[in-house]
Amino acid sequence: MKTTYKNAIDSEITLTELMLPSHSNFSGKIHGGFILSLMDKAAFSSASKFSGQYCVTASVNRVDFLNPIEVGELVTLKARINYVGNSSMVVGIRVESQNIQTGEIKHCNSSYFTMIAKNDTGKKVKVPGLIIRDLNGLRRYLRSIEHIKMRNERKEAFSKKNFIPDNYEELLQGFNVKLELS
């Protein structure tokens, strides 16, 4: 089977939504869970557009909420494929809010969602390869490779089978922890 390739631009999605009072938390700011839901929708849309398949979320790599989002602001999510594996894709998402009265735009968060392409029976399916056309695209692709490598190393080191507590004794110095292991 011949591999097909697509450009990252073929995966670009932009979602914009007005933030309503029903989206807010008890402090009057937009609830982080609501933003995560929008991010998941953007990741699904981007990955499905790129792969031509139904996609599911496999993991989310860190979400830092940098700036609060206010009721009445427009939130824009920009998503695109940064990396592809066999059936997996890493979608980079940037979230910005805009005050519609002043025009001020704030970067609210960025994150990376790993999505898996599935067929009608729920089996993983091969996705197109990624054509990289600029240094930013190359940087994003390589960042994903490094993240996957570090995640796998961490998973291995902290597995029940391989974990050696003595290897971390010095690391715990200076942390707010007291060990009373039995």
Rank of each mutant, 00 (worst) to 15 (best):
R80Y: 13
L66R: 10
I93H: 10
V60E: 01
T57Y: 07
S88F: 15
N82S: 15
V91P: 07
I93V: 10
I93K: 08
G72C: 07
L74I: 04
N82M: 09
Q98V: 05
V84K: 08
V91I: 11
L74Q: 02
G92T: 09
Y83T: 01
V91C: 06
P68R: 05
V90G: 13
R62W: 04
E73P: 06
P68L: 07
N86V: 03
V60C: 12
V90T: 12
G85D: 03
T57V: 01
R80F: 09
G85C: 08
R94E: 06
L66Y: 11
L66K: 14
V75S: 00
N86T: 07
T57A: 04
V95S: 09
I69S: 01
G92V: 06
R80C: 05
I81N: 05
A58R: 02
R80K: 14
E96I: 04
S88P: 14
I69K: 02
S87N: 01
D64A: 13
T57E: 03
I93A: 05
S97A: 13
V90E: 14
R80I: 00
V84P: 15
D64V: 12
K78L: 04
N82E: 10
L74A: 06
F65Y: 00
A79S: 15
K78P: 00
S97I: 04
L74N: 07
T57W: 02
S97Q: 08
S59Q: 06
I93G: 05
N86Q: 05
K78C: 02
S59I: 10
G85H: 09
D64E: 14
M89H: 14
M89A: 14
V60A: 06
V90Y: 15
L77N: 13
N86C: 06
P68Y: 15
I93E: 02
D64I: 07
F65W: 05
N67F: 14
A58Q: 00
M89E: 13
T76C: 07
I81G: 04
S59F: 13
G72P: 12
S59M: 08
F65G: 00
S88E: 10
N61T: 03
V90D: 13
I69M: 04
R94Q: 12
V71C: 11
N61Y: 09
R80S: 11
D64Y: 14
Q98F: 02
R62I: 02
S59L: 10
N67T: 05
S97W: 10
T57M: 03
I81Q: 05
T76L: 09
E70I: 00
T57R: 00
K78W: 08
A58T: 07
V90R: 12
A79T: 07
L77G: 11
L74W: 04
V63T: 13
N61M: 04
Q98C: 11
N82W: 15
